[in-house]
Nucleic acid binder design. Structure first.
Lengths: 339, 339
DNA sequence: GTGAAAGCGCTAACAC
DNA sequence: GTGTTAGCGCTTTCAC
C-alpha cells in the first residue's frame, strides 16, 4: 500500500532533484524535457503515487474540464438515454459532467445554475427550457459560459445560442401519414404541456393534419394535457371511453401517456389493435412490452450531438458568431403491433 | 445586462473601499463584520454581479463540495431512481455530483476513479462493485477520499468501508413465501449474474427455499443467466417452454428478465396469470403496464441513505473507526395481477 | 534543458 | 472591526 499522504508537485521536485517547472512540463507532456529527465521524474511520480491536483490546475488555467447538465426529472426514461449520449462523447474528450436534477422547480434550477457558475464549469446543457423563457440564462453569458439547449427549445434563440433536437413536427406527421395510408382517419390526439417546444410542435403537426389531410376532428377526441405521464394518458382515456363515438386510433404525444392509455383500455376490456389502435411518441424501451408502435426521437444521438457542439464551442473562439446553430435530427417511425 | 467581465474579490474590495478580508468575511457570512459594512459590501457585490470562484475556494479549503457516483449503466431504470435519491440529499447539503457511467468497462471505471481523485471530489458512491473485488478501491484510501458501496456489496468490507443496500435475500424469500402460501410450489427461477452480491443473495434465498420449504426443484426450471436483461428472460423462457413439464410460476430475479419472460409467454399464447404466474424483482415503474407483481427494492431510499452516510463521513473525523457501517433496508412485496 | 518566481482567487492567521 | 499578507498547488514567463 502506498502512503496515505498527499504529495504535491513540490515533493516530486524535491525527491527527483528537479524543479517544479520541469516536473510540471513532464506532467503536461511538453516536449521540452530531455528523455532521461522525463524518465526519472515519471519514475518518482509513480513511486510516490503522486496525482496532479486538478483544482489547482483549474485555478491557473481557468478551465475545469467539467460540464453541467440541467434535467427536470432523471426518472423519466427519456433522459438517461440522452445523458448517456452526452456522457459518451464528454468522456471521449476528457470532460466530467455534473448532473443537476431540477425537479421542475424554477428556484432550484436557478440555484443550480449559480452553483455551476461558481464551480466554474466550462459549459452547460439545458434540457429544461420552456418556450417562454422563464429563466434568465443570461447569467451564463455574463460569466462567459457557453450553453446549448437540448431537446426543448425556447421560442427565440439568440445569436450566441445553440440548439440540438429532433424534428417533433415531422415525428407526429410521419405517424399520422402512416395511419392515413392505412385508411385510419378517426384519430384521438393526446397533447402534452404546451409550454415545451416539443409538445407544441407535436400538437401543431396534428392541427395541420386536421386541416390538410383527411383527419376527422372531434372536440372530444382532443386532450390538452398539462402533464405527459402515465396518469395523464390514463385519465384522458377514461374520459374518451365515456364519449359515445370512439376513434379508430389514439395518438399519444408521449409514450408515457400511451402507457396510461394502454392500461385504461385494457382495464375496460378493449383489445389493441383489434378494438382500437394506439400510437406513442418517444420509443421508450419498455414500449416493446406491450407491442407499442411509436416514434423514435433519437435521444441518445441528441445527447451525442449536443456534446459535440458544446465542446466545439468551448474550443473555438467564443467571440466568433455562431452560424448554423441548430441541429435538427430526423425521428423514425417504429412499427410494432399496436397499429 | 451586467458586464461580461469576471470580477474577483479584489475588485469588490477596491470598489467598496474595504479589504479583501472583510469582503471574504461577508461572503462567508462570518459574524465579525459590522452590519453597516456588510450591507455596503453586499450592495457592491450585487451591483457588480460578482460571484465567488469556487475553484479558488476549493484550493484553499481542500474541499470541493463535490461527490462522484459510479454507475454501470444509467439506462437501466434501476439507477435513475437511486441517483435521484442521492441527488436529493446531496442538494440539500450543498453538494454537486459527477455522474460516471462506466458502461461495464473496468478500465473506464478505473480511469473515472482517477479523474475523480484529480478533481478532488470529497466522496464517492460506488454502485458497481462485484463480490470479488476486481477493482482496487484502495487508491481512494490513499487519497483520503471516503466512499460508500451502494446496492452491490463486495464479499468482505474493510473496517473503513460502508455499505448501503437492501436485503436481497429477504426479497426473494418474501416472494417465495407468498407463493407457497398460495399453494404454488412448482417454481422456475431465473438467476442473474453471480458476480454481484444482489443476484447472489437472491439465488441463495431460492436455494434455501428449495431445501427448507416445499419448493419442488427441477433442473430445467433453474436458469443461471449471465445477464439480467430482457433478452436473458426471453431466451430462458423459450427454453423453459420446450421442456415437457411446466412450472406454475416463473420467479425472475430482475424485472427486466420478467419483461422478457412476459414477451416470450405472450408470443407463445400463454396467459398470465391464468396459464402461468410471473414474479419479478425490482418493482420497475413499467411493470405496472403488464400488471407484474414484483418486489420493491427501495432504490430511491437506498440513494438517500447512501448520501446521508457518505456526507456524514465527510464531516466526521476520518480517523474515527466506523462502527455499524452497513445499512440494510427491507424490501417490500408488491402484488399486482401476475401472481 | 532547466530553474526561480509570479500569480490564478480565495481564506485565515495575525496585526492593528 | 478591519487590513495585510502568506499560501493552497499548479502553470508559465523569463533567465540562465
Amino acid at each position: 500500500m502506498k502512503s496515505t499522504e498527499k504529495f504535491t508537485i513540490k515533493d516530486v521536485a524535491k525527491k527527483s532533484g528537479y524543479s517544479v517547472a520541469t516536473v510540471s512540463a513532464v506532467i503536461n507532456d511538453l516536449p521540452i524535457v530531455s528523455e532521461k529527465s522525463k524518465k526519472k521524474i515519471l519514475k518518482v511520480i509513480d513511486e510516490m503515487g503522486y496525482r496532479p491536483n486538478n483544482i489547482a490546475r483549474s485555478l491557473k488555467n481557468s478551465k475545469t474540464s467539467t460540464l453541467g447538465i440541467l434535467v427536470r426529472d432523471i426518472t423519466n426514461p427519456f433522459y438517461p438515454a440522452l445523458i448517456s449520449g452526452i456522457e459518451e462523447v464528454a468522456w471521449g474528450k476528457n470532460y466530467e459532467v455534473f448532473l443537476c436534477n431540477t425537479e421542475n422547480d424554477i428556484e432550484k434550477e436557478k440555484k443550480y445554475i449559480d452553483n455551476l457558475i461558481s464551480k466554474q464549469v466550462d459549459g452547460i446543457f439545458i434540457t429544461t427550457a420552456s418556450t417562454k423563457r422563464n429563466i434568465d440564462y443570461n447569467v451564463l453569458n455574463e460569466s462567459n459560459i457557453p450553453y446549448v439547449f437540448v431537446n426543448r427549445k425556447p421560442d427565440l434563440l439568440f445569436e450566441n445560442e445553440s440548439y440540438v433536437g429532433v424534428d417533433n413536427y415531422a415525428a407526429v406527421e410521419k405517424g399520422i401519414r402512416y395511419l392515413i395510408n392505412k385508411k385510419i382517419n378517426k384519430i384521438a390526439f393526446y397533447a402534452g404541456p404546451q409550454e415545451f417546444s416539443t409538445f407544441q410542435q407535436r400538437y401543431n403537426a396534428y392541427k395541420i393534419a386536421v386541416k390538410e389531410e383527411s383527419l376527422i376532428f372531434k372536440e372530444e377526441w382532443l386532450f390538452m394535457n398539462e402533464e405527459f405521464d402515465e396518469n395523464a394518458g390514463y385519465q384522458s382515456t377514461l374520459k374518451l371511453l365515456e364519449s359515445n363515438s370512439l376513434p379508430e386510433c389514439i395518438f399519444c404525444s408521449s409514450d408515457l401517456m400511451a402507457f396510461g392509455a394502454f392500461k385504461a383500455l385494457t382495464e375496460k376490456g378493449l383489445k389493441i389493435p383489434d378494438d382500437i389502435y394506439l400510437m406513442g411518441t418517444d420509443n421508450n424501451r419498455f414500449g416493446e412490452l406491450i407491442g407499442l408502435s411509436s416514434i423514435d426521437m433519437k435521444n441518445k444521438e441528441i445527447g451525442r450531438q449536443a456534446a459535440e457542439i458544446l465542446i466545439e464551442l468551448l474550443n473555438s473562439n467564443t467571440d466568433k458568431v455562431q452560424k448554423d446553430n441548430e441541429i435538427i435530427l430526423q425521428p423514425e417511425l417504429i412499427l410494432r403491433n399496436s397499429c
